[in-house]
Computed example of a mutant assay.
Amino acid sequence: MTGKLYGLGLGPGDPELITLKAHRILTSAPVIAYPAPDTGPSFARQIAGPFLRADQLEVPMIVPMRVERFPAQDIYDAAAVTLSHHLDVGSDVAVLCEGDPFFYGSFMYLFARLAGRYETEVVPGVSSMMAAAAAYGRPLAARNDVLTVLPGPLDDEALSARIAAADAVAIIKLGRHFSRIRALIASLGLTSAAGYVERVSLSNQRVLPLNAVAEDVAPYFSMILIYKGQEGWAHASHSSQSAAQI
């Protein structure tokens, strides 16, 4: 019998936000795979680190951190071949994913290559978007509000049109696009309705109104939340609990 493939959502970074189900599989699977940059540690591996055992086989999947578009197909092709060797001999394989595996997660590319050949289970995780709203102390959306998630690399025209059509917006993948996006939000008259959260749930988390951010760049793990709906939250200050974490 072949092994079972798991895609484990680990949440936004705090190990305590790993679900009980993900923890059970994480601590029992003999093979643990995770994406890792070509320089520096794997974030997914760091989240899971407190629960890993010395006798588990770790399989890092090296993904170069470059500006050009990824995933590179050959990287996931090679990773699928490597993981299939373990599955073929009957070993379960747990692939670690920060956040949720199917919400901009790299596991979806392995799923496309392997799920048709092996029993596969995807374990959802707490997404950074939900964690950011909790940290900022303002609900994402309610009732009939339309919530839109926008990747920061979209151009200004696309961002403007989608923001205009939404009641609530989460802009992710800010990085080098932060200054441009902040200027766009200002041009739309929405700065006072926008909050900024970076490295949510980690010890170096920052939570503050967008107009209080002094920097012109943001880390990859950062997000802007905008509320334009009817619930009266748009200009609400973030919570005192969040303010203490700035």
Results as ranks from 00 to 15, higher is better:
Val95Glu: 00
Phe103Glu: 12
Asp100Ala: 04
Ser128Trp: 09
Val93Met: 08
Val67Pro: 12
Val126Ser: 08
Gly116Asp: 06
Gln46Arg: 08
His85Arg: 14
Gln73Thr: 13
Leu83Gly: 03
Met130Tyr: 11
Arg138Gly: 07
Leu154Ala: 09
Gln46Tyr: 00
Leu87Asp: 03
Ala135Met: 08
Gln56Tyr: 09
Leu83Ser: 06
Val59Phe: 14
Glu119Ile: 03
Val149His: 01
Gly125Ile: 04
Phe43Gly: 10
Ala48Tyr: 11
Leu140Asn: 00
Asn144Tyr: 14
His85Phe: 12
Tyr109Trp: 04
Ala141Gln: 14
Ser84Gly: 12
Pro60Asp: 10
Arg53Cys: 02
Val123Pro: 01
Gln56Phe: 07
Gly116Asn: 04
Ala72Phe: 12
Pro124Ala: 03
Gly90His: 05
Asp92Val: 02
Cys97Ile: 03
Val149Tyr: 01
Asn144Ala: 15
Leu96Ala: 03
Ser127Glu: 00
Val67His: 15
Ala158Gln: 15
Val126Phe: 07
Arg53Ala: 13
Asn144Ser: 15
Gly40Lys: 03
Asp77Ile: 09
Leu83Asn: 13
His85Glu: 15
Asp100Leu: 05
Ile163Glu: 11
Gly116Phe: 11
Ala94Tyr: 10
Ser42Pro: 04
Asp100Phe: 02
Phe107Ile: 01
Ala80Gln: 05
Ala134Glu: 08
Val89Cys: 14
Ala78Phe: 14
Val59Asn: 12
Glu68His: 11
Arg66Phe: 08
Ile47Met: 00
Gly90Ser: 03
Glu119Cys: 11
Phe51Glu: 05
Glu58Thr: 02
His86Leu: 10
Gly99Thr: 11
Asp74Glu: 14
Val59Arg: 13
Arg113Cys: 05
Ala161Val: 10
Ala78Val: 11
Phe103Asp: 08
Ala158Tyr: 13
Phe103Met: 14
Asp100Trp: 05
Gly90Arg: 13
Ala133Cys: 06
Leu159Tyr: 09
Asp155Tyr: 07
Val93His: 02
Arg162Ile: 05
Leu110Tyr: 03
Leu140Phe: 02
Gln73Asn: 14
Ser160Tyr: 04
Asp156Arg: 10
Glu121Leu: 05
Ile75Arg: 05
Pro124Cys: 09
Gly137Phe: 08
Ala161Trp: 10
Val59Tyr: 10
Ala112Arg: 15
Leu57Met: 14
Leu110His: 05
Ala133Phe: 13
Tyr109Glu: 00
Leu150Phe: 04
Arg138Val: 15
Leu140Asp: 04
Ile75Cys: 11
His86Met: 07
Val122Trp: 06
Phe111Trp: 15
Gly125Ala: 07
Ile75Leu: 12
Pro50Met: 01
Pro101Ile: 00
Phe102Gln: 04
Leu140Trp: 07
Asp74Arg: 04
Leu114Ser: 02
Val93Thr: 08
Asp155Ala: 07
Gln56Cys: 07
Gln46Leu: 10
Ser91Asp: 14
Ser42Gln: 01
Arg45Trp: 10
Val95Phe: 06
Arg66Asp: 04
Leu114Asn: 00
Met129Pro: 00
Thr148His: 06
Ala94Cys: 13
Arg117Pro: 04
Phe43Gln: 07
Phe43Trp: 11
His86Ser: 08
Gly125Tyr: 00
Ser127Phe: 05
